[in-house]
């Protein structure tokens, strides 16, 4: 809750400072904000809607059992493996995370899932990384990154 107010205050301060220092930049920022709103509002709404429609269909016991707060490091590993095969951007991953959260998943497990989705990102690998950087680079990056999702879950387990 405190962070919510801080973020609101930060947004107001950012607009205020920009208005005083650089009017042209403020206009630019407002243009970015409007176009971002146009792109983001429908995507966020659909993501939340999909999550709310699917949540009652997912049996809580299944999710809680596999990746619940009690599942520990085993749950972190399962969540990492699942996150690695989620294709697409945040409009796909966040509804899944919301559904899992409502179904009783633990935060460290969800963190591992999001980490795996972020660093492995099979859609990005196929569409951008291999064509632009080459197979060799992509494989080496994967090798250097595979340990990160379980590690992020482990650190979250230790912190929480």
């Amino acid at each position: 809750m405190l962070v919510d107010y801080l973020m609101g205050a930060a947004a107001c301060a950012a607009v205020g400072v920009t208005a005083i220092r650089d009017r042209a930049r403020l206009r630019h920022a407002l243009q970015i904000a409007v176009s971002t709103l146009g792109r983001t509002i429908p995507a966020l709404f659909l993501a939340v809607l999909a999550a709310q429609l699917l949540t009652p269909l997912i049996p809580n016991k299944v999710i809680g059992g596999w990746i619940g707060p009690e599942s520990g490091m085993g749950g972190v590993l399962i969540a990492s493996a699942f996150g690695a095969i989620i294709p697409g951007g945040p409009v796909v991953s966040f509804p899944i995370v919301l559904i899992f959260q409502a179904g009783g998943a633990g935060s460290p497990q969800l963190i591992a899932l999001l980490s795996a989705w972020s660093v492995v990102a099979i859609h990005r690998l196929a569409a951008f990384e291999v064509p632009l950087m080459g197979v060799h680079f992509a494989l080496r990056r994967l090798a250097a990154s595979l340990v990160l999702p379980p590690l992020s879950g482990l650190i979250a387990l230790l912190l929480s």
Binding site: M7, A11, T18, R25, A29, L30, I32, T36, L37
Partner: peptide, 13 residues
């Protein structure tokens, strides 16, 4: 969402 979008836009600018 409103606060987030405004903050992100000013940052980007």
């Amino acid at each position: 969402i409103m606060a987030a979008v405004i903050l992100a836009a000013v940052m980007q600018a």
